Simulated scan of single mutants.
Amino acid sequence: MTQEDEAGLGLRERKKRETRVALSRATIALCVRRGWDDVTVEDIAAAANVSVRTFRNYFSGKAEAIADGHLERMTRIADSLRAREADEPLWDSIVHAVLARFVPRDESGAEAPPDQRWADGLRLMLAEPALQGEVAKANAAAQEALTLAIAERTGTDPARDVYPRLVAAVVGAGSAVAVEYCLRADPPASLEPVLREVFDRLAAGLPTP
């Protein structure tokens, strides 16, 4: 394969990834705002400016599209871990990578203020039974991606060492706990300080308060 062929393949793969992300984001936004039952595949395709056939080429339905958003975010975190300086402490790298993907920012770079209506809609969407199976599959794939990235950073072998799988599981669980805590807070809590507290406690070995 020539360099031109490889460049073309890389561009196609990037465009496909961008389409997946756009469809996933459109699905999440519509389901949060309208409710699960009031969103159709036609609505999602229109919001993403693609055809229904294109949506079907990527996802079997709303649940898979939403779960893919979580997998994409965790895959990006794994990519970020690989890109951080090799001598940076692992948990510092994890915090930077997680915050970059979980915390929404405004134009100034500050965390966007919590939105009660968005939090309520997101909580209802995540409780949708039809979503649970796809989320479980996405979590498994996300944990595998994180495991491989952590193994590379720590020089461990996921086939022989429990450490990278343990850290990947903890990162996933810690992030989920922080998001759920913020969504259930009244009023909704800012995510960044909660994520920082979660990972500070994990890095410290979860000492008893």
Rank of each mutant, 00 (worst) to 15 (best):
Q116T: 14
E192D: 11
L30V: 07
P193Q: 08
E134D: 11
W36D: 08
T154C: 06
S80D: 14
A63Y: 00
L131S: 04
V21D: 14
D38L: 13
E64A: 03
V198S: 05
L148R: 10
R33L: 11
A138E: 00
G121H: 02
M1H: 13
L71S: 11
R105C: 05
E6Q: 13
W91H: 11
A127E: 13
E18W: 11
F59V: 05
E197N: 09
I66Y: 02
L146E: 01
R53I: 09
P187R: 00
A173W: 02
V95P: 10
L99T: 03
R34W: 04
G35I: 07
D92Y: 14
Q116M: 14
S93F: 05
L206H: 09
R160V: 11
I77K: 01
L166M: 14
P158Y: 04
K16E: 15
S108E: 05
A169N: 07
L122E: 06
V21P: 09
G172K: 01
C182T: 02
L124D: 15
P209F: 02
L71V: 09
G8S: 13
L195Y: 00
R84H: 10
T2H: 10
S108G: 08
W36T: 05
P187S: 06
G10P: 00
D157A: 05
T54K: 02
A97Q: 01
R14E: 10
R17M: 11
R201A: 10
V21G: 12
V39N: 02
E88Y: 15
A151L: 04
A142C: 07
R117N: 14
T75Q: 14
F199M: 08
A176D: 15
L81W: 03
R101Y: 10
E144D: 14
V179S: 06
D43K: 02
L99P: 05
K62R: 07
A63E: 01
L30F: 06
V167T: 04
L124H: 12
A112D: 12
R73F: 07
P164D: 09
D79I: 07
E134A: 12
R56T: 14
D106C: 12
E4C: 10
N57H: 09
K16W: 13
A189M: 03
R56K: 13
E13C: 09
L122K: 05
Y163M: 12
D92F: 12
S93R: 06
V135W: 07
E64C: 02
L183N: 01
T147R: 02
Y163S: 12
T19L: 04
E134V: 08
A29R: 02
I94P: 00
A78C: 06
A29S: 06
E4T: 12
D115N: 10
E134C: 06
D68F: 01
D120L: 09
S108F: 04
C182W: 01
R53K: 07
T19A: 06
N57S: 12
A47I: 00
A145G: 13
V167W: 00
A159L: 13
